Amino acid sequence: MKGQLRDLAVDVKVVLGGLWATTLLVFAYVDLFGFYRADLVRGVLAGEVGGFVVDQVFLVLTTLYVAVASLMVAVSLLAPARFNRIANIVVSLFYAVTAGVSLAGETWAYYIVGISIQMALLLLITRVAWTWPRNT
Rank of each mutant, 00 (worst) to 15 (best):
L121I: 15
P133N: 15
G17L: 03
S116C: 08
I115G: 05
N88P: 12
V49T: 01
S116R: 12
A129G: 08
A120W: 03
V41K: 01
V26L: 08
V14F: 15
T126R: 04
G43F: 05
D55N: 03
G114I: 00
R85S: 09
T126N: 07
L77R: 04
E106C: 12
I115R: 11
V113H: 13
V60T: 15
D7H: 12
M119R: 13
V57N: 13
Q118Y: 05
F94I: 12
Q118H: 06
A99H: 09
Q4E: 15
M72F: 09
L77S: 01
V90H: 07
M119F: 05
L45F: 05
T98Y: 03
K2F: 11
T131R: 15
T98L: 06
A69N: 12
I125Q: 09
I89T: 05
G43M: 06
F35K: 01
R134P: 03
S102F: 05
Q4K: 15
L40T: 11
D31K: 09
I125G: 05
F58W: 14
A81Y: 03
R85Q: 15
Q118P: 00
R85I: 09
A21I: 01
D55T: 00
D55V: 00
D11S: 11
V90I: 13
L121W: 08
R127S: 14
L61P: 02
V68E: 07
T98W: 11
L93W: 10
F58D: 10
G3T: 00
A38Q: 11
G105R: 12
L45W: 04
L123I: 08
S116F: 02
R42T: 14
T107W: 08
Q56W: 07
V128K: 03
D31S: 13
F83S: 15
A46W: 02
S92C: 05
V101P: 01
L19V: 13
W20L: 01
A28R: 10
R82L: 00
T136S: 14
T98Q: 11
V41G: 00
G50F: 04
G100A: 03
G18M: 01
V73D: 12
T126Q: 06
Y95W: 08
F58L: 13
L16E: 12
D31L: 09
L5H: 11
